[in-house]
Each structure stands twice: as C-alpha cells, then as structure tokens.
Design a protein around this nucleic acid. Sequence first.
DNA 1: GGTTGCTATGCAACTCGTTGCATAGCAGGA
DNA 2: TCCTGCTATGCAACGAGTTGCATAGCAACC
Lengths: 183, 183
Amino acid sequence: MALEHAILVSLLEQPGSGYELARRFERSIGRFWTATHQQIYRVLRRMETDGWVTAEEIGQDGRPDKRRYSVTTAGRETLTRWLREPVQPETVRHELAVKIRGAAYDDDAGRAALIVQVERYRADHVATLDRYLAGERRDFLDAAEIDAGQRLQHVVLRGGIAYERMVLDWLDDVLDTLRGLDR
Amino acid sequence: MALEHAILVSLLEQPGSGYELARRFERSIGRFWTATHQQIYRVLRRMETDGWVTAEEIGQDGRPDKRRYSVTTAGRETLTRWLREPVQPETVRHELAVKIRGAAYDDDAGRAALIVQVERYRADHVATLDRYLAGERRDFLDAAEIDAGQRLQHVVLRGGIAYERMVLDWLDDVLDTLRGLDR
DNA sequence: GGTTGCTATGCAACTCGTTGCATAGCAGGA
DNA sequence: TCCTGCTATGCAACGAGTTGCATAGCAACC
C-alpha cells in the first residue's frame, strides 16, 4: 500500500519515466522497497488517473515515446497526509534464514550445497556495499550537505551501509556455524 | 513462493496446529518471514492435499477441534529439493526509509510528527531486541548446543539480534539528523 | 452482568506482486 | 550476418498476501 508513495518521493527528487523509475528501484530505492517495471507502469497509470502525477510525452527518434512524470499538487498533498500516518513495521522476507534452519533436516551434501549458496549470497552483498560506499563518496562526502533533502538521503544511505555491514558479519558467523557442524 | 517451506521447517522443528503456527510466525519465525493466520490456514490445506503434511484431529471440549499437522516423507523431500535451489535475495519493505526521504517535502510540523513516529518505532525495536535476548538466554546460553538444529536456530537468532542492534543505532542517527534539520 | 480477550478455524472479496510474453528500432560485438 | 542487449512500454494470467467478517465457548476482570 505504499509503492505509490515511494514513487511520489522518487519523482519529487527527480521527475522521470516509468523506465527510469524502474532503474532507480533496482539501485537505490529498491533496496528498501522492491518493485518490478510492471508494477511501476501499472501504478503510474493509476496515479495519473487519480491526478497525483502528470505525464509529458517526449518524442524520441528511433525508439518509443517517453512519458516523463511529475508530481502534481494533489500528489504532494497525498504524500504529506501519508507521511503523518503511523509507520508500519518493516516487512522482511528472508529466505536464507529459513534455509539455514531447514539445513538441520538435510544431510551433509545438502549443507555443503548451502555453504556454496551462502558464499554467493555474501559476494552479492559485498558488491552492494561497495556500490553504496561509492555512491556515498560521489554524492555526500565532498559536499557540505546544505540541503535537507540531501541530508535525509544520506541518512537513509547510511542505514543501507550499516545493514550491509551487519549482514556480512552475520554471514561470516553463518559460514563458521555451517562448517562447524560436520566436524 | 516460500511460505510453504517456512511452514515445513517450523513443523519439522515442532508439529502443531495452524493457530500455533500463526503464533510462532508472530514471534520468532515471523521476524524474517511474516504471515497472517489466513495465509497459513490456506497454505496448510493446500499442502495437505499435495501430501506434504498430514493432519491429526484432536478433539477438545468447549472449543473447536484442533488439527495437528506433521510433515510427511514427501514434504521432507520437497523441502530438501528447495534447500538446494539458489537462494533468492531478501525482499525488504522498509516504509520508514521512504518516509524519511519524503520528509524533505514536508514542513517542520510534519517532521516533528515523524520524529514522534520514529521514537515509537524505536521503542518497538527495543522490545524486540529484549525478547530475542531473553530467548537466547533461555534456549541457548546455558545448554551445550550439541544438536545441529539448535546451533542453526541460534545462528539465525544471532542474526536477528545483530539486525535489531543495527536498527537501533541507525534510528539514533535518524533522530539526530531529523532534529538537526530545524536548527 | 457486561466487556474484553483468548483459543481455533474458516469464507469471501479484494489488492498487491510476479511471470511470461510482445513490440520495435538501434548499437555493438563475434 | 546474426545474436545479444539496451531503451521504452504494455497486456494477460496467475499466484501471493491483506482485510473484514463470522462462529463459539471459556476465562478473567471490573
């Protein structure tokens, strides 16, 4: 019930097309609110009929027209109202945690396979942390951060960085535990 | 696509009724895989028709019969097969992070309201951390942890504890940032 | 004596989210 | 030259998840 609001925030930070939004969701925003391009396109059209956003057709040669969306006053009011509603607890779907507990009901070969999976998973998180740190260096560390928007974006990014570091430490703990079971 | 598997793991650890499962999902398992009782009941019935679990009717006086579910051999094989499939990246729906970035487009009164929300959110996470720590003392710290299942449950719990500690630190950072905007 | 709350399950209707596929032209590499 | 991949949007069908409501008896509280 909040993809709309995530889109509103993203469009306020920077107007863009559905495609561009989908790419942003893959990168920064998507780490705390995932969405596929299908969802984004569908929700954008609904938001347009509800008058929360307006689209401006941008003709391009050789490729389909782009629809650049911006937030309307009505959309901004909707966002403000939502901001003041109680915060819902975060929803986590952590498949790996289920698999780790499930590993108790598999044999040594299964656990060996899980270790390989965890190592791959860990490599993905190393890559994500690196991307975050690069983004932080690029966007925040050199500037004086005068802007409230920038400070808020930075504190959310710091949350992502802290999360990734925590996950990496935990995955080391997991790998030690899994490897320790066979001895 | 993995609520089934979370239920299988939970039932292997301890057979139980839909209601009992729902309560477990509210507590321990639910922190990394949320599910309402509606979902659990529906999925349990499907799992029963698929032959992954069997139900044993337990008559009780004064209240509706209980259906105690256990995992069948076929269910266990399904779980093992799933355990060896690639791990999907975790899905996070972190509404608070969206609201923090959105706060850039609200006024001082809105940000003051958000600070109150963050404080409440923080109190919830303090309570969760306390519950985890109490559970750890109760189930893991005194025992020698001979059992592989216990060691795996413990490492997942340590992940939960690390997560909650990280969140609390980050929320302090968030509160400092939000309070610093008005100065 | 009334209200609240717990155990225990379930239906119906709805919204959210995913998967597979389709179009379509251009750019770059083997 | 063919194949892959990128920009850009969308339909259709399905599966996952939520919300509201209903039943029903017992226990505890005020």
